[in-house]
Design a protein around this nucleic acid. Structure first.
Lengths: 156, 156
DNA sequence: CGAGAAACGTTGGCGACACTAACAATCATC
DNA sequence: GATGATTGTTAGTGTCGCCAACGTTTCTCG
């Protein structure tokens, strides 16, 4: 991700009146914009950690599921096997997790966090909480539940 | 995007029981999964057209706003100027839109659809309708409204 | 049991995008 | 009229999604 503390925005600021016509009725359009906004804020919040959403999710899942295989990760995150490889490689190179041999199935490998990985995850979780409260600030608790419920129907 | 009619999925199918632990409470996580699911379905629906969400959105917006400048597009779609360039270049290369000189401001350029672009948009809009009904099939009309409303708060 | 099918990890390649950084031309403003 | 901002542009980097193909290992089924 490589986020700098940066200035020099090339992203034109929107003066709050950009009409988008019929596009306003397209759920997919709003989903994309919302995703983009959240993605950007996440990147900001994590600029000091140099971690992406994906990377944090992987650390998180590996912590929750020791000895998980790459395929398990891929399933839970709806990722391609190849993409999973790339992410695991990156995290392994940074010393946040290690691959091991599976005892039960020699095709598989186990994934586990290192101490450094656990440390990074702890810091990352704090940042996630911050990010989430930025996000949730626009909603009542009930609305948050509704939103999660509605989004879940989309990916289940 | 380059979508083939394809077989040979490298994306492991998920057997509907993938537990994700605490991650279940993270709005951002659901948003990412939902976005991914919608993105994938969109790509499928548009495989015969070879158009991405972004490209369709740009065609749509240019049709609604003749003579719009690239900055206008970028604002409405929350895109980087550089990214906007890339997309406009692609669409121009395919003969779907043309750049022209602005009469009022010689820094700006006007964007307009060609006949081919209008034709593509017409077909694309039909595909969008199909895509949207796939998406909306999981919701009541009221829920659709709620979802749009909640998502809008995230990007406005 | 043994052969073929399936799963797992791996690699390489392509395309889409986001973001940065820097530049020239053109306004806008004082 | 000089200064600073805006617009389009190019170039580069990094993330990620998907496909294709391969070797190893396991499963399935005749």
């Amino acid at each position: 991700m490589r986020i700098r503390a940066t200035a020099a925005a090339t992203l034109p600021s929107v003066g709050h009146a950009a009409d988008i016509g019929d596009l306003r009725d397209i759920v997919g359009f709003h989903l994309r914009l919302a995703y983009g906004a959240v993605y950007r804020h996440f990147a900001e919040t994590f600029s000091h950690l140099d971690l992406t959403q994906k990377q944090v999710s992987v650390l998180w899942l590996v912590a929750d599921h020791p000895d998980i295989a790459q395929t398990g990760l891929a399933q839970r995150m709806r990722m391609d096997r190849a993409t999973t490889m790339a992410i695991v490689n990156r995290l392994e190179a940074r010393g946040y997790l290690v691959r091991g041999k599976s005892a039960t199935d020699r095709r598989k490998q186990t994934l586990n966090l290192t101490d450094a990985g656990r440390g990074a995850l702890t810091v990352a979780k704090a940042a996630v909480r911050e990010h989430e409260s930025w996000l949730k600030a626009r909603y009542t608790p009930a609305e948050v539940q509704t939103l999660i419920e509605l989004l879940t129907r989309l990916h289940e």
